[in-house]
Design a protein around this nucleic acid. Structure first.
Ligand SMILES: [Mn+2]
Ligand SMILES: [Mn+2]
Ligand SMILES: [Zn+2]
Ligand SMILES: [Zn+2]
Lengths: 126, 126
DNA sequence: TTTGTTACTGCAACTAAGTTGCGTTATATT
DNA sequence: AATATAACGCAACTTAGTTGCAGTAACAAA
């Protein structure tokens, strides 16, 4: 069940994701907005935005939950699948707009896949 | 720092991984061996076996930590990288012995990657 | 076989991300 | 303005994993 009412929290969170095309962890949002918005509310709104196809989520290298904006998804179709890149130096995570070539696995039916690539980002490389 | 003394716990845990070529989550090991071995000890021995290159670890779809036997690794070189498959029906996880073709990402230096494929395993497919 | 060193173990207490229940507040509809 | 109920804040909870420390056991030396 997604978002029905345009509340202050929804607006603030969407703002965070709009001001920069980068993924944000739930923890980071709580750290930065936690004295304005209750953490339970943050988790619940993120969850609803994901249901609506506005955001998608994935797990970073430590198992933390990250969110980023979707491209062309809606509440009925969530099709924006892609790898993510996490910088081991600065911690930044972003979406990689490439299709992953999955290995051939006999006798198994693939439904999802998640690829997390780790290394140095373009800033930390230079 | 790896394992120095061949203790009962080490033997029991290695046994678990030897009797079946499948990945096992730390949680599962605690559930099944927790009244014989303390969970702290289980976590610590798994950690050391990983240092030694006997086991490798990765995160499953819920962020739980899984372990599986390494092939050709040692304490000095941990090179057995490969994707993992988690069955969404029965929960089984296993190692896929295939090299992953990583997408081309400009201006970034790749150090690791982890690919988790989800779907139905060979048993649950039939 | 006994002794001594210290790696390993068990326990209890802790950490931290995420969840749940419930009473209150605010949005949107009439 | 009155009403319905989605959304919120708070506190308490859940759970995988960690930490500190005192006691135990593996292993080598005597
Ligand atoms: Mn993404
Ligand atoms: Mn594996
Ligand atoms: Zn970086
Ligand atoms: Zn299965």
């Amino acid at each position: 069940m997604g978002i029905i009412r345009k509340t202050k929290t929804v607006e603030i969170l969407l703002n965070e994701f709009n001001k920069n095309e980068v993924a944000i962890s739930a923890k980071k949002l709580i750290d930065s907005l936690g004295n304005t918005i209750n953490k339970t509310t943050i988790y619940r709104v993120l969850d609803k935005l994901e249901d609506d196809g506005v955001l998608h989520s994935f797990l970073g290298k430590d198992g933390l939950k990250w969110y980023a904006k979707c491209n062309g998804c809606s509440s009925s179709k969530h099709t924006d699948m892609h790898p993510h890149f996490q910088c081991l130096s600065c911690g930044k995570v972003d979406c990689i707009s490439t299709n992953v070539v999955l290995p051939n696995i006999p006798n198994r039916q693939i439904e999802f896949s998640q690829l997390l690539i780790q290394g140095k980002c373009e800033v930390c490389c230079a």
